[in-house]
């Protein structure tokens, strides 16, 4: 479904340009969960941003990204907007930064469904409550009327997930959705995300620097280092027979005693 081929991304500096992504190729099939694992600064977020065409203004992207055969890199204007509104949605690392601090939660959700996806305001408002229940939020009305700074990170990330599944997209891009949360809520949020994904049959490109977490929820994992995908394979394959020394390093550096599980949302 998603096919990234030979993706290069360079950011123009004052004098020289810096190569951030180098010949990156990643595929995600329908309903599949694919991991993208790498250390900080390796270019994971930049890969996701290129798919939604929200790379920095001074970035130059070459190569090809297709979504069900449609050339994403050639999209602009209304078709691009519709792709973002309907087909692909994104969950970012820090929910505090994603929500506009001066707008209440209700408006965040309504904006996505009404202004982006074209639902009527009335149905969007109704749907907002249902969605929040779906992601396990109890006091729906209170949360809907709150401003972002009044909610915890875990609560906000649930709101973001609710917004991301509102349009039943085919592909979900998740950029370290639990890294900014405290440990107790991480597993909970991860479970909600994984449940929603399975329920709606969405494909997911899941970014993390935690190989174990990726192994727990992904069908396939890409290991990235310095803007290059150095290895791709099933979790078991990476565990039992890592081809690239960097993959081995990643595995060795993970905290001892963590068990590779493959239950739904089985982080921890």
């Amino acid at each position: 479904m998603l096919d990234i081929r030979g993706l290069n991304l360079a950011i123009a500096g004052e004098h020289s340009s810096r190569q951030i992504l180098n010949n990156v190729s990643i595929t995600v099939d329908s309903g599949e969960a694919v991991g993208l694992v790498g250390e900080s600064g390796s270019g994971k977020s930049m890969t996701l941003r290129s798919i939604l065409r929200t790379e920095p203004r001074n970035a130059r992207v070459t190569g090809s990204i297709t979504l069900d055969g449609i050339d994403v890199l050639a999209l602009r204007g209304e078709p691009l907007r519709l792709m973002r509104a309907r087909d692909v949605s994104m969950i970012a690392q820090n929910p505090h930064a994603v929500l506009n601090p001066v707008l209440p939660i209700r408006q965040y959700l309504v904006e996505g469904m009404h202004d982006a996806q074209g639902l009527s305001v009335r149905s969007a408002r109704l749907r907002a409550g249902e969605l929040l229940e779906q992601v396990g939020i109890d006091h729906v009305d209170r949360v809907l009327g709150s401003y972002p700074h009044q909610l915890s990170g875990g609560m906000l990330q649930r709101v973001v997930i609710a917004g991301a599944i509102a349009g039943r997209p085919r592909l979900m891009l998740a950029d370290e959705p639990t890294t900014a949360l405290d440990v107790t809520t991480q597993a909970e949020v991860m479970a909600i995300l994984d449940d929603c994904r399975r329920e709606l049959g969405m494909a997911m490109l899941f970014v993390t620097h935690d190989l174990d977490l990726a192994a727990a929820i992904c069908d396939r994992i890409n290991v990235m280092k310095d803007g290059v995908v150095v290895e791709t394979g099933a979790p078991e394959q990476l565990r039992d027979d890592p081809q690239h020394h960097y993959t081995r390093e990643l595995m060795d550096s993970r905290p001892a005693g963590v068990i590779w599980t493959r239950t739904a949302g089985g982080a921890e």
């Binding site: 792709m83 973002r84 309907r86 930064a97 994603v98 001066v102 904006e111 202004d115 982006a116």
Partner: peptide, 27 residues
């Protein structure tokens, strides 16, 4: 304009004019 919530609003498919008005200019 480069703030994450403005960029994410665009990434969610909110029309450019609205992002400009509601997120960029307003904030």
């Amino acid at each position: 304009r480069d703030s994450e919530h403005s960029v994410m609003a665009s990434a969610r498919g909110v029309p450019a004019m609205l992002v400009l008005r509601r997120h960029v200019i307003r904030n």
